[in-house]
Amino acid sequence: MELRQSHLVLAAVASGLIGAAVLGWSAASAAPADGQKLAFDRGKGNCLTCHEIKDGPAPGNLGPALNDMKARFPDRKELIAIISDETKRNALTVMPPFKRNLILNDKEIEEIVDFLYTL
């Protein structure tokens, strides 16, 4: 988390846009709407391919419906782990290893988890 932030700040300093970048980051983490966008976007999470999610059109069913997330996954780290690389828990899963295969970065995964916690 801290590493992420300082990376961003570094990048921002380099491009001379400190204010905008820091604001951008804090706005994102406070807005699950972005997480929803990432989760639904076919080029990003594309979670709807396999999971039913509230308000998501044309979902698939290879994985369980994503609901009641706070009750079922009180530990945020667990959700991050599942999205990052579910093959670590279940070698045969078809769920893509989003972080390992560079489909989603840490920031995007955090945003998706924020969104999941609204479900």
Binding site: L48, C50, P59, G60, N61, L62, L92, V94, P96, N101
Partner: peptide
């Protein structure tokens, strides 16, 4: 990270979208 079998052996009848 899919094999052909991930879809057509592990999940026939399943819905992808």
């Amino acid at each position: 990270n899919f094999s052909c079998a991930s879809c057509h052996v592990q999940n026939p009848g399943g819905h992808i979208r």
